[in-house]
Amino acid sequence: MIRYMVRRLGQGLLVLFVLESLTFFLVHALPGNPFLGERKLPEHVLAQLNSLYGLDAGIWEQFFRYWKAILLHGDFGPSLVREGVQVSEIIMQAFPVSLELGCLAMLLAVVTGIPAGMLAAWRRNTRTDALLMFTAVAGICIPSFVLAPILGITLGAHVPGLSVAGWDNPLCILLPAVALGAANAAYVARLTRAGMLETLASDFVRTARAKGAGSGRILWVHALRSGLLPTVSYLGPAFAALITGSFVVESCFQVPGLGLHFVNATMDRDYFLIQGLVFCYGVLIVIANLAVDVCQAWLNPRLRA
């Protein structure tokens, strides 16, 4: 297992390298530049700014310089829009916010989604099943840009303690977490139900049943293990996506997380910031997928490669 994880981490580094390099060329292919203001910038000022930040060099030179700074100094460069602020500072400030929001949202999704999915599978084709699945599909159909303002206007404005938007007291986290977790809870419920149905019909559960194992035991011990496989594959990347923030939810609730930076940096062509954020996301994806694979190996010994 240790050897497997070391190998996977090695692969992870390769993933990060390829990802970061691809992103480098993609962001430079975007139209416009970071210094493009609302008013036209005189040529000589633009040239001065470009040379100051090394953007006047050839693309390959910039590429090597970028990697050199990361590898030798761990330096992700400065923000080109908020001059004087380092990319790493921006990420360090926003990441804790997104992390706690994402964790809470994920927790909500898992603690509601998995039991709901299991219950629906166990009571297949009953009214409970129909009701649960109806709710789940409705949850998926309501996009976050609708759910977020509705939550804010209804609960946020009227339930004492909750707030419409903002980030100035500890309870502010609840509504954004619900808005972020709802769709994921629905996904998890649907996938869990599907996975469980698949396993409940499979031979080894039949065998267990034939041997006279009680229904509770079947559900928990045998079926859950492999029934959760699709859910777990979904959860890995979903978790990474959740803790890097969502632009819509953050902008509807005024949460100072990574999601806002992601979109704003792209719109402003803040090259170094986009790359820093993608790097951060890449690290999370690699870790999340590794965790998923380890989890799956534990859930289903057959997957141990």
Partner: peptide, 16 residues
């Protein structure tokens, strides 16, 4: 193949 998926998954959607 799976690491390729990881790379694609982490690419910023809007930029792409």
């Amino acid at each position: 193949m799976m690491r390729t998926v990881d790379v694609l998954f982490a690419l910023p959607f809007i930029v792409v």
